[in-house]
Design a protein around this nucleic acid. Sequence first.
RNA 1: GUGGACGUAGCUCAGCUGGUAGAGUCCCGGAUUGUGAUUCCGGCUGUCGCGGGUUCGAAUCCCGUCGUCCACCCCA
Length: 445
Amino acid sequence: MRGMNDVLPKEIGAWQHLEQTARALLAAYGYEEMRVPLVEHTQLFRRSIGEHTDIVEKEMYTFEDVGGDSLSLRPEATAGIARALISNGLLRGARHKLWCTGPMFRHERPQQGRYRQFHQIDVEAVGFEGPDVDAELIALGARLWRALGVTRVRLVINSLGTAQARARYREVLVAYLRAHESALDEDSRRRLSGNPLRILDSKEPRMRPLIEAAPLLTDYLDEASRGHFQALCDTLEALGIPFTVNPRLVRGLDYYSRTVFEWVSDALGAQDAVCSGGRYDGLIAQLGGEPTPAIGFALGIERCVALMKVAGAAPEPAAAELYIVASGERAEREAARLAEQLRDALPGRVIQVNLGGGNFKTQFRRADRSGARLALVLGEDELARGVAAVKPLRREAGQTDCALVDLPARIGALLAQERVAAADAACDAQEVAGAGSRAEQAGRD
RNA sequence: GUGGACGUAGCUCAGCUGGUAGAGUCCCGGAUUGUGAUUCCGGCUGUCGCGGGUUCGAAUCCCGUCGUCCACCCCA
């Protein structure tokens, strides 16, 4: 399927590392996981995201179910979460810190970092009005990058003000753009009536001078929004989180108000936003719930994984630690028994027993490819003597016999030792690589 | 939705102005009948993306289609 990807075992390590890191961090900030359906009534998205947005106009997977209802695969998570809070009666002045993860669907032309089925981690703080929570969400993002070792991201923020302030600005902007209508490109002319603020985001070089001379939303903010934004900036500075204010950052979903932000990277090609969001103080009321302020963001998992790869922070899949080689019917049965015994004694260790027979050559080849640091050898000789041979596979050392009854303790100790050796080797390798890149850097300077 | 590049072995790719497909790697076997990773020797693998057209003859030229990638657009 176009734009739909398989995540293979080779890459799943990065996904799991991201998910586990985020899960732990979110729990530590007091956010609770929730899950909502992949499918909602089409109307929910039309009303929340906005009729004139590209997402609703041309990117939704919409279909009629057997009962005749128009349903859509969710193109984003916030609408579904807002709906869930309303329909489960969870508002009534309550406050919620929530998160959710899963696939989203948009029918776009795929390119780097943009897929038709993509995955997000979505974080929402509902019922919080002040700028303190805006700063907390951004701090959470900053901490996630640090925890993942992702470095090539920077924070861009802006304030859209209240709906009223934005409406006022919109009139001014449209008037300005109409006055220069002949200078607008085709896309911008189309957006003039539907979504004029998005014109400010245009990458068309011809449009640059016009956009730069346009009136700024910042100058039309209401006092309360201005204060809110200033407080956010002050808090970010106090937290030592660098940011830039981009008065032309507008976001493409209609429900945003006041604070909007994006974490962008120069390492992702044209799709440079890894994580972005903003405040949506009016959305819940608009969907029929009690007026409740809220803010949230979505992190693109595929894009984040790409950044982890760039940073060399994407872990390899876990290698085997012990591989059990056995030759002969009796030895194979004994190997299966020993493997289970070792799994009891050493939970968490990756123990693979040779499956499907094969001569010693074949089995040792498999042992090598499994990445195991130790091989346990069980043949007729060993069986007759009541021992198994233990052979290190990753360093020069002879194999030694070990009585079967002593195996759990012995293997446990040896694997611990091997782990230390592996960590040392990795450390050395990193130092060498580090020295290399430092040298390169010096060379460039 | 628009534009551009590209689809040849499991993978990375070569294949000239049309003459019926090749390298490296991987995998398998042997050297070594109880020992991997190295070395040497031998071997397997193809609807040349798919469909049509031009031609005596198409991987090669033309058209269509599907897919991948990149950019516009949009956004995570």
